[in-house]
Every structure is written in C-alpha cells, then in structure tokens.
C-alpha cells in the first residue's frame, strides 16, 4: 500500500489537533484577537448556540480589517469571516485534509466529533507534522543552520 492508501485509511483523529478557540458571531474582533494571542493560534472558530462551526475568523481576516483601518473593538467577527471553510469529522480519512491543503490551499480545517461538535483545528501544520513523523529519517534529522528552532516557533 502506498502512502496515498495510508492517507485514505488513517483517520483525522490521528492528526495533531490544536484546541479550537470558539467564539460567537457577535464577539468583537478585538476580543477574538486577544484569545488568539493567548493561545498562539491563527484563527477563532465561530460557532452557533449548539457548538456547530459556522465560520472562521483568521489572521487573514484580521489583516484585511487593519488594512481598511477598521477598529477591532467596533466590529464583530461574524462580518469578517474567511471564504474557505472545511469541516471534517475525526473519523474521516486524512486524505480529506491533505487534499484541502494541497488543492485548495486551506490553512485551517475544523474537526468535529460524529455528532458535529467542534473538537479541534488542524490543517497545514497538522499535515506537515504528520508527514514529518512518518518520514523521520528524511525530515526530522535535517538541520536548519544554527537557528534555535523552538525559540522561534510560531505555533499553529
């Protein structure tokens, strides 16, 4: 079985997941930004009353707001959501996330349990870490100059 077969068999639940930041659509952008900074995470997930994801407020959303000189305190995240939103279940195959990153360029993929409740965020970082773990001799042994890696780590 090739690696594509493994991606089809292995489930999203085995990808590195980050705890999601859940906000309401009427949360101010400023409050969302504070949470994102606190958790060092590049997005906040907008959920409805039942906890189902309905949108994504990301660093890109933030940049777009600042570029338009909009006040973060006076606008809500529901008005500045990302265009691309993919929600997968933890029991779905990892190939769904791979394809979303490779073909659609999505940075974040939201993960729910089988009842549709949000349980985490994965995406570009999750797939990259999964790949690195599967090919340790080809990836993890590589050295990147004298840079102290962990000191400069951005987070998800």
């Amino acid at each position: 079985m090739g690696f594509r077969g493994e991606l089809d068999q292995d489930t999203v639940g085995n990808l590195p997941l980050r705890d999601a930041i859940a906000v309401q659509h009427d949360t101010t952008a400023l409050d969302a930004v504070k949470l994102m900074r606190e958790k060092s995470l590049g997005c906040a997930v907008i959920v409805d009353q039942g906890g189902t994801p309905t949108g994504l407020f990301s660093e890109q959303s933030l940049v777009d707001m600042l570029a338009r000189d909009l006040s973060l305190a006076d606008h809500v995240v529901g008005d500045f959501t990302d265009a691309g939103l993919l929600v997968v279940r933890s029991s779905d195959p990892i190939s769904r996330v791979w394809d979303a990153v490779e073909r659609d360029g999505l940075r974040f993929v939201l993960v729910t349990d089988d009842e549709g409740k949000l349980i985490g965020v994965t995406g570009q970082r999750g797939i990259a870490e999964y790949l690195a773990e599967r090919f340790p001799q080809q990836v993890l042994v590589q050295r990147l100059g004298n840079t102290p890696w962990m000191q400069q780590r951005e987070g998800a």
């Binding site: 940075r107 570009q124 970082r125 990259a128 870490e129 790949l131 690195a132 090919f135 080809q138 990836v139 993890l140 590589q142 990147l144 840079t147 890696w149 962990m150 400069q152 780590r153 951005e154 987070g155």
Partner: peptide, 16 residues
Amino acid sequence: DPVGMALAGIAVAGHR
C-alpha cells in the same frame, strides 16, 4: 537543500 529540509522548517521549526 533537500525537500525534507523545507518540510523540517515547517513541521519541526514551526514556520508556515
């Protein structure tokens, strides 16, 4: 550098 080095920069060093 090999492709694995680029992946190390992303997955291990943590830079997008």
